[in-house]
Amino acid sequence: MDVIAGNLDVFGQGLLISIQISVSTFVLAGGLGLLLTVCRISPVLPLRLAATAYVELVRSIPLLVLLILFVFGLPEIGLVGPLLGTAVVAMSLYWATFFSETMRSGVRAVPQGQIEAARALGFTFGQVLRLVVLPQALRTIIQPLASLLIAIVLNSSLAAAVGVTQELTGQTQLLDQRYAQPLVTFGAAAICYVAMAFIIGRSAGYLDRRLAVQR
């Protein structure tokens, strides 16, 4: 236990970096996922096809393989970026596909009559989406989005596998190499992850109750 007590700052730092990675990934993936969703429901066929192809392809690649491709593969063709940034980009590209599918199901849950009423009032396609469809869709997918955020947080640990040692799992590996007490160090890391997942889950439940749409 001394290992934990003596290295609280290390865990704190690792946790902080993990949260930063996760939040950046969530925001980037959310933006890209929204774009993909809009393409997939747009009246323009090429956009629909391109977005569908992207989702089908990228979500079929294991995240670890995608991370290795970006971090170690791209430099071979001269594309070198900062390690942390590259990892975040790879994860965002991956999670955007899941965002897109989740949002699309939310959009589908919005009754057709809501869209007709908006069109009948003279809203443009963009306004119908922004003012009516997305606000209602988001309210129905709060819980699945929380599951997605939890998945992003937990899988941010894969960044350690491509050398992002600053984040929680990476820091824990370093402590493990120094003290050789994996049960204690990784046990502590596990508790940190569980705590984050717990907080996300509870917050989502709260938001869901506050914002639920009565139909």
Binding site: A117, A120, L121, G122, V132, P135
Partner: peptide, 18 residues
């Protein structure tokens, strides 16, 4: 613009639920 000039009332109301 045309739709804005032709108000529509639906059987199922279709008020924006949010």
């Amino acid at each position: 613009q045309l739709r804005a000039q032709a108000g529509m009332v639906f059987q199922s109301f279709n008020l924006f639920s949010h």
